[in-house]
Design a binder for these strands. Structure first.
Length: 206
DNA sequence: CGGCAGATCATCT
DNA sequence: GATGATCTGCCGC
């Protein structure tokens, strides 16, 4: 099979959001706005499930203006503003009517590094470039105006570039910033690439 | 390096 | 009216 290959809709519509979050480690994440290509390899994700996950915005089928996009078929973006400052990017997964999503928390930069430095206001290439969910979106030029965008298009998409990540190189841990979710905060639904300096430094409150 | 205050606003109660 | 799937800068060690 020739690489690179844009991830097909079938990758996102699978039913297990936790599996999808794990599978995304090692895939490539790109944006191309006004002919400017930026991106890198996904090294950290978190899974959120509409069913049985109090940390999910769409917990128990909650439908609000903000969460409605999560009920679309897998393969579109869910982007929302947090703390009035940062846009967080998620991939909606599973079939229509379900509300699962994968938060992209960190990437290892590979394409358009200078442009990403410009967007982040950094003169050096360091983890602060893309190691965190609010930083990835800044570096890639993503904001809430991209909420709902289709990942089969040519502005925001994911690719399989043939990178093989062995199971034992993927670390499962607690999600960050979801202490409000009670027992569900203990779900090991955060995945990261072992040893990568591009994984965010944030630590779960447990 | 660790802890903490502050930024800033769309969304939801 | 309160809060958040965050990040930065400042302060003290």
């Amino acid at each position: 099979m020739p690489f690179p290959q844009k991830l097909p809709a079938a990758f996102y519509t699978r039913p297990d959001v936790v599996t999808i979050a794990r599978d995304l480690i090692g895939k490539s994440f790109y944006t191309c706005f006004d002919g400017v290509l930026t991106g890198g390899m996904v090294v950290e994700t978190e899974a959120y499930s509409g069913l049985n996950d109090a940390a999910c915005h769409a917990h128990l089928g909650r439908r609000t203006k903000r969460t409605q996009i999560m009920y679309e078929p897998g393969g579109v973006a869910y982007v929302y503003l947090i703390y009035g400052i940062y846009s967080l990017f998620n991939i909606v997964t599973n079939v229509a009517g379900t509300a699962d999503a994968v938060l992209i928390r960190a990437i290892e930069p590979t394409e358009g590094i200078e442009e990403m430095q410009l967007r982040r206001g950094l003169s050096k290439v360091e983890p602060r470039l893309t190691a965190g969910p609010g930083l990835v979106t800044q570096a890639l030029g993503i904001s809430t105006r991209h909420n709902g965008i289709d990942l089969s298009g040519n502005e925001i998409w994911f690719e399989d570039r043939g990178v093989q990540v062995p199971e034992d190189q993927i670390v499962a841990g607690l999600r960050v910033g979801v202490a409000y979710a009670g027992a569900d905060a203990l779900l090991p639904w955060r995945f990261s690439l072992k040893g990568s300096r591009w994984v965010s430094k944030a630590k779960p409150k447990y």
